[in-house]
Design a protein around this nucleic acid. Structure first.
Length: 859
RNA sequence: GCCCGAGUGGCGGAACUGGUAUACGCGCACGACUUAAAAUCGUGUCUCGUAAGGGAUGUGGGUUCGAUUCCCACCUCGGGCACCA
């Protein structure tokens, strides 16, 4: 027998598989379908390290098992090549991004091709291909031309909104919209000018232009979404990519009204088989708070200030109000504020604060609005109104009521000597009675600690009672608020999908029609950032002359729907045919990093929900099951990086040990979802395993296996099948190692049994198994053979080993028949020679027998 | 500060639903083969103890006949959110 020559074997079979197209997805409507998807990569310039393919190998193992299990498997790969990473790379290397992407894709494909992944490459997509982004632009326009009807709980065409406006105005509309909407009636909709109509509709569109504080990154010359920024070690806000400083800046921007879907993005999680960890992150990010809107009437002036709270049960101790410095009330009531000039000074200070000072929790600053008093709706007391920058304008109503329970409010009150009051204990169940107690509190120089809760009520019950009570006086209403903000959908950069809109000289926006798509990105020489806050496209004369939008779409646009395109990747008439969409449905198994929890995974769900609302797709959620891949760290435990000079290149591993060894090792090194350090020493174990498998060919014969090893075969098939299903690849391999060690002890191995073993190893080590399989006389690929089934009868042991404990400590071990009666076993154990010494002269209190596992004698 | 997750040999890790803790692999030690080395194969490898036996799954408690697994408190590490009312 020849030695295991991985180079020869791997080259041979990779060529063969390519020629025979065994991994090609069928278009037929075979009813067992399985969509196994990897998060597609952005092709970076530096090439792959050994950690990148780990996820692809895992999904490949899964896809291969499913293929052998008779499924029509869709397992594609593509490129997410628009966006900042690709463009930054291009700028640094002074290559046009288009060219850079082409080159990087080549490197990527060369590196991936030698690993033996079973992709159907004919379905490859690339987000920068105009044939692809034609449909990204189309989806954008669909979103742009839609609004969200809260009553129906779904998105609808903007035309339907216009006809409602024509008939009844917007008085009775319950829609997700920008919050500065003024009410108009049916009578005046037609009286609005074209521009006015546009402005009103813009407040309802799901993709809209708005004015908002955004994350501006001067060095990158663009705005960034909340999930694209992070804090560095010093606590400063920086860009996730590159670590450049980011500042808050008010700008006109395109947004996506993802907040309209906030509730569905939370409730939809219940349908998904994702790790609870990712679900938790998304829930946190969306940040749902159930509470109440409270009205504080303004004394003498009239009107009221609205406040959002989740703790209405603390309203009786609310002794002042705090507004954010940007709150509209302040400017509207300039003349009534006695110390307005002082306020202006404060505002100036706030504006000049650095990010670090602004988020300093230990140093609250504020100013009282003199001459303004509001009424606490629960107590009827006049309370003062303050302004402080710790109150955030964009959350809730930009105003809070303050009470001593809240640490921030408490700090503020202590610093400025504002009266406080703590925990009123009502004397009876009537809420009105509590007001009496409140008076007492005030008299004690501001603070009175009078602990206790509402009689017989949990704080939750108290909340709903108080809300009801104040609601009956029209002073409160139940409300839900979310932390999540609408997503900024524009980048002032060159390398992205153009937004398919035109502006005429009067500022009227028109959308491109499908027949005019794609709106291709102009091929320019200079794509450097402008530094003015404008996109490089603003410098392209022909572009500007046509009135095209100069911002481009963010990186997440193309990746928010690519999983649909794979279903029908070359369709030129639709983003994908109805037939293909209905057949493939959701992604059954999605594999990728957990770092996309608040970005890609949320945006995809948002777009998917939208497309579902519009009836284009039949599934509510894009990714039914998801498995997250842990990072492969360098041997020193740090991230693999050029900077640390600790990068392990998969090419070297493939060349030295073979692709199969790389695959087996990456699956064996530890749990799939766990971050693990690479070990240059340990990989040899996986190679030795495959060497053993190769050598076992010498022992194959047609003689029957003995019963013992036959059992191990069948148990291993069961274990490996289950483990692959659960992505427990490390234990699947360890059980196969056990089997191989057993086989080595035997003189002969039955050919049929050995072939079953090859089949369950095939997803992990496709090349070597194919080689041996065909050495054994098979003419067709092992990878299109049928997944072996274990024989239930053959995994049952007649004789089993069980442990005997005395008082919970193992003292002996016996072999018994599995069906032995409890009576018999009890007799056996108390006479066992190893046990006798421990129970002599002692009273046996109990004997516990757990069938097939253990006997415990209690003395 | 709040919300998750995890702590098991020298190392990566295994252990079903509470039932023989340390499977599998690496490393290490010894042995076989070899002139020798590599490769390969075999034996051993949590710890204290000559042994009998005792002790170990981050720490301390609890529940149980029995706890890595369940409960409580704490410590350490990782992740997410964060002046979000």
């Amino acid at each position: 027998m020849k030695n295991y020559d991985h180079k020869k074997i791997e080259k041979k079979w990779q060529k063969d598989w390519k020629e025979t197209e065994i991994y090609k997805t069928l278009n037929s409507s075979k009813n067992k379908k399985m969509y196994v998807l990897d998060m597609f990569p952005y092709p970076s310039g530096v090439g792959l390290h050994v950690g990148h393919p780990r996820g692809y190998i895992g999904s490949d193992v899964y896809a291969r098992m499913k293929r052998m299990g008779g499924y029509n498997v869709l397992h594609p790969m593509g490129y997410d090549a628009f966006g900042l990473p690709a463009e930054q790379y291009a700028l640094q290397h002074k290559i046009h991004p288009k060219k850079a992407v082409e080159e990087n894709v080549k490197t990527f494909e060369r590196q991936l091709s030698i690993i033996g992944l079973s992709y159907d490459w004919s379905r490859k997509v690339n987000t920068t291909d105009p044939k692809y982004y034609k449909w990204t632009q189309w989806i954008f326009l669909e979103i742009y031309n839609s609004w969200y009807d809260n009553k129906k709980g779904k998105a609808r065409k903007i035309d339907e909104l216009v006809s409602i406006f024509e008939k009844t105005g917007n008085k009775n509309i319950n829609a997700s919209c920008s919050n500065d909407i003024s009410v108009f009636t049916a009578k005046n909709w037609k009286d609005f000018s074209k521009k006015e109509k546009q402005d009103i509709l813009m407040k309802y569109r799901l993709a809209y232009e708005g004015y908002s504080e955004v994350n501006w990154c001067p060095q990158m010359g663009t705005v960034l979404a909340n999930d694209e920024i992070t804090t560095d070690v010093k606590g400063d806000i920086v860009s996730e990519r590159g670590g450049y400083p980011v500042e808050k800046k008010s700008m006109r921007q395109w947004f996506m009204r993802i907040t309209a879907y906030a509730d569905r993005l939370i409730s939809g999680l219940d349908r998904l088989e994702w790790s609870s960890h990712i679900k938790e992150i998304q829930k946190n990010w969306i940040g749902k708070s159930e509470g109440a809107l409270l009205k504080f009437p303004v004394k003498n002036i009239g009107g009221e200030i609205e406040v959002f709270t989740t703790r209405i049960d603390t309203i009786f101790s609310g002794t002042f109000l705090i507004l954010s410095p940007e709150h509209q009330f302040i400017n509207k009531n300039k003349i009534n504020i006695e110390n307005f000039s002082e306020f202006e000074k404060y505002l100036e200070i706030v504006k000049n604060k650095t990010e670090e000072e602004r988020i300093d929790k230990n140093n609250k600053t504020g100013i009282e609005l003199k001459g303004i008093k509001v009424i606490n709706p629960a107590t009827g007391f006049e309370i003062p109104v303050w302004v402080s920058d710790f109150v955030i304008a964009s959350y809730g109503t930009g105003a809070v009521f303050a009470d001593a329970h809240d640490k921030r409010d408490f700090d503020m009150a202590k610093k400025y000597n504002i009266p406080l009051c703590v925990s009123i204990k009502p004397q009876d169940n009537s809420l009105f009675e509590k007001i009496k107690n409140f008076e007492e509190c005030f008299e004690e120089e501001g603070i009175l600690f009078n602990s206790g809760t509402f009689d017989g009520l949990t704080s939750k019950e108290a909340r709903s009672k108080i809300t009801e009570w104040l609601a009956s006086k029209k002073l409160a209403s139940k409300t839900i608020k979310y932390k999540m903000r609408d997503a900024v959908f524009a980048r002032q950069r060159y390398w992205g999908e153009p937004i398919p809109l035109k502006h005429d000289k009067d500022g009227i926006i028109s959308d491109l029609k499908l027949k005019n798509l794609p709106l291709e990105l102009p091929n320019v020489k200079s794509y450097e950032i402008m530094g003015t806050g404008e996109s490089p496209l603003a410098g392209v004369k022909s572009w500007v002359k046509e009135g095209y939008e100069t911002n481009t779409m963010p990186g997440w646009a193309g990746s928010s729907w690519y999983f649909i395109r794979y279903m029908d990747p070359t369709n030129n008439k639709e983003f994908a045919s109805k037939k293909a969409i209905d057949y493939w449905n959701q992604v059954d198994m999605y594999v990728g990093g957990a770092e996309h929890a608040t970005g890609h995974l949320l945006y995809s769900r948002f777009w998917n929900n939208f497309l579902y609302d519009m009836g284009y797709i039949s599934f509510k959620e894009p990714f039914k099951k998801m498995k997250n891949i842990g990072m492969v760290l360098a041997t020193d435990g740090r991230k693999m990086s050029k900077r640390w000079n600790n990068v392990v290149n998969p090419d070297d591993i493939v060349s030295n040990y073979g692709a199969d060894t790389l695959r087996v090792y990456e699956m064996f090194m530890g749990p799939f979802d766990q971050s693990l350090p690479w070990s240059t020493e340990s990989i040899i174990g996986s190679r030795r395993f495959l060497d053993k498998v190769f050598r076992l060919q010498n022992k194959i014969s047609n003689k029957n296996s003995n019963i013992e090893i036959e059992k191990v075969f069948h148990k291993t098939i069961k274990k490996v099948s289950e483990d692959i299903e659960n992505f427990s690849f490390n234990t699947a391999i360890s059980s196969m190692m056990v089997l191989v060690n057993e086989m080595e002890k035997n003189e002969n191995i039955n050919k049929k049994d050995f072939k079953m073993f090859l089949q369950i190893l095939a997803p992990f080590a496709p090349h070597i198994t194919e080689e041996i399989w065909q050495n054994l006389g098979e003419k067709r690929s092992i990878h299109t053979s049928s997944w072996p089934k274990y024989d239930k009868k053959k995994i049952i042991d007649d004789m089993i080993k069980i442990a005997i404990q005395v008082n919970g400590k193992v003292r002996s071990e016996i072999d018994i028949n599995k069906d032995i009666s409890e009576e018999k076993i009890k007799k056996i154990v108390i006479n066992d020679k190893n046990v006798v010494a421990w129970i002599e002269n002692k009273l046996i209190k109990r004997i516990i027998y757990v069938k097939g596992r253990i006997v415990n004698i209690v003395v």
